[in-house]
Amino acid sequence: MAPDDAAKRRRTGRTLALIAVAAVLGIVGGTAVGYGIQADREPTPLPPLNQPGLAYPAKPLPKGQEPVPLTAAEDRGLRTEGDLRKLLLQKPAGARKVDFAPEDGWKGLAAYAEDFDGPSGEFEYLLGNGVRRIASTAWRTGEYRITQINLVQFRADGGQGAAEHAEDQRGFMEDEAGYGTPVKGSEDGRTYLLPVDRKAGYHDLYQARAYLHRGDVMIEIFMADAKKISQKDISSLAERQLERL
């Protein structure tokens, strides 16, 4: 694949929020959003170092003198090594289910790639960057508002899959909504309010998005509504989701 082609594919747009709200508003009919079921696999342990003499200290410390293990608050990696679905924000009180949300909270890579322009290229790119698993949730509140959150985890083997994936999507969003607003607590995460989509005879369509990462997990959030979405709404959601990681 030529470099220019790769750049075009990686800076692709997400269509799921638009399709979801369009279906709710009756703008399109007969659209089904498929999803794959990803097995709840245990994290794959790294192979041991095959080099003798690297252990320190040479002998185990006496009982009672061992160092205290780091807590989850001190080692964020402990949080993401467990069930990634438990780190997703919970549905707010009164929220309703949406058809495209995976029943078990896992989204398969093929279904995830289908939300991009150029699914096969995105599938190949994510595999090459070491994508590991995707936890996903979505809900509907009010009359039309739909919210979706994806946690896309990459293998922590020295690569920068989560950072690169978030950066790619932010690059695309600059063309759609400018430079966005920084997410508090994130190094380079941003939220975006897209221009309203108005068509004669249909409800207005408002969209907001967030792209950020922490460690090996990339966070993406989509909001769509027939009414205006405030900056506070999308920023608060992004900050609260980041805190859980």
Rank of each mutant, 00 (worst) to 15 (best):
S230N: 08
S186I: 02
P119W: 04
G94M: 03
K97A: 09
D99N: 03
M1W: 08
Q207N: 10
E174T: 02
Y125S: 15
K184M: 02
R41M: 15
F222W: 13
T31F: 12
G215Y: 07
T137L: 02
R155E: 13
E42C: 06
L16G: 04
I221P: 00
R76P: 13
L89M: 11
V21N: 10
G29T: 07
E122L: 13
M218A: 14
K8E: 12
A7R: 11
H165W: 14
R10A: 14
P69M: 09
W106E: 00
D115L: 04
I134E: 03
L54Y: 07
A113D: 00
T191L: 02
R10H: 15
I27D: 15
G185W: 01
K228T: 11
I19L: 11
D233G: 10
Y112W: 13
K184W: 04
H213I: 03
D216Y: 15
G108S: 10
S136E: 09
E66M: 10
R41E: 14
V21F: 09
A7M: 09
I234M: 09
K232A: 11
K232H: 14
R41H: 09
E81S: 11
M1I: 14
D216F: 08
T80H: 07
R198G: 03
Q160T: 13
Q65R: 10
K86V: 07
K199H: 08
G64L: 05
Y192C: 00
T71P: 05
Y192R: 01
P43S: 05
L70W: 10
A135Y: 05
D233V: 15
L46E: 11
P69A: 08
P52Q: 13
I234D: 04
S186R: 00
R10C: 07
G82N: 13
G171D: 06
G185C: 04
E167I: 01
Q241C: 10
K59M: 13
P43V: 01
Y206I: 06
D204Q: 10
R214W: 07
Q231I: 11
A20H: 02
H203Y: 10
R76K: 12
Q231D: 11
V183Y: 01
G171Y: 02
A163T: 08
W139T: 06
F116S: 02
Q153Y: 03
G178N: 01
R170Y: 03
A95V: 01
G142P: 01
G108P: 06
G29H: 11
A58F: 14
R140A: 14
Y35R: 05
Q160H: 11
G158D: 03
G171H: 05
G34A: 11
I146R: 01
F116V: 00
K97L: 07
L16I: 14
F123W: 12
P182A: 00
Y144T: 12
G26K: 03
E167L: 09
D225Y: 02
K91T: 07
A138K: 01
S230G: 10
R214V: 13
K86P: 04
P67G: 05
R155Q: 10
T181L: 05
G185P: 01
A58D: 06
L194S: 03
R170I: 04
A7Y: 15
I234F: 15
V183P: 00
G118C: 04
T44A: 01
T137N: 04
I219L: 12
G201H: 05
D197A: 14
P92D: 15
G64T: 08
L205Y: 13
L127P: 05
E103T: 09
D233R: 12
N50V: 04
Q65P: 02
G158R: 06
P48R: 09
R214H: 14
L25W: 04
G34K: 14
R145I: 03
L151S: 05
